[in-house]
Amino acid sequence: MAAFLGGAALAGESTGTVTGSVPLPDRVSTRIAVEKYSGSISGKVGTPQPGVAGVWLERPGLAAPASPPRFSLTQKDYQFGRSLLVVPRGTRVAFPNEDDDYHNVYSLSKGGRFDLGRYMRGAAPPPDMLFDRPGLIRLRCEIHEHMRAVILVVESPYYTVTDASGAFRLAKIPPGQYSLHAQADEKDHRIVTVTVSAGRTTTASFPASPARASIR
C-alpha cells in the first residue's frame, strides 16, 4: 500500500519530483487491423502504439493552466499517433491526417461527444476539438474500426504519460500533499496520496489492483 519511499535531497531547489511505475492493464486493447471487405485501407497498417497510462496530480484549489499548450494527435499508417494523451482541461487538440485515405475521428464518450467528419491529408488547419471537461474520452475513426485512442482531460497543470513499461516522472512540482492519479481506461483508475518535498524525489507505487488506496 505504501506509495512514498522518499528520495535524496537536492540542495537549493524549491520543487520536487515524483517518479514511479503504474501497473498497466494486461489486456489486448486494439483490434486486428485487417478489413473484412475491401475499400477502406489502401496502404500499410502500422503497429498500434503500446498501451500506457496517464498520470497526474490533484489537490484542492489546483486547476488546469489558464492557457494550456496546444496538442496534436496524428493519424498515420491507419493508427493514432499515441494510444493515450493527457491534456489539461481547456486544451485544444488538433487531429492531422497523414494518410492518403480519409479519416473521421469521433467520440461518443460522455462529456466529450464530437465528430470531426471526413477530412484528408493536408487539411489546413487540421480539424481540432476543445476539451473543456475533465474525464476520459475514447476516440475512434468511423472508417477504420481498429483505430482507437484515449484522451484524458485532467484538472491539473501536472500531468504526464507513462512509458510502455508503466514508468513515469513528474518534475518541478511545488511541495505539498497531492492525490496522484493513474488511469489507463474507465476501469483502471488508481489513486494514491503522495507528499512532495522541495529538492527531493518521491517515488510512488500503486496498488496492484485499481481500487482506491491512500498512503501517508
Partner: peptide, 18 residues
C-alpha cells in the same frame, strides 16, 4: 469484455483472436 475487447493475443502478438 469486462477485461478487454473479447480479444486474445500471444505475448509476441503473433497469434491473435477476436
Amino acid at each position: 469484455s469486462a477485461q478487454g475487447l473479447g480479444a486474445w493475443s500471444s505475448t509476441d502478438g503473433f497469434y491473435r483472436l477476436e
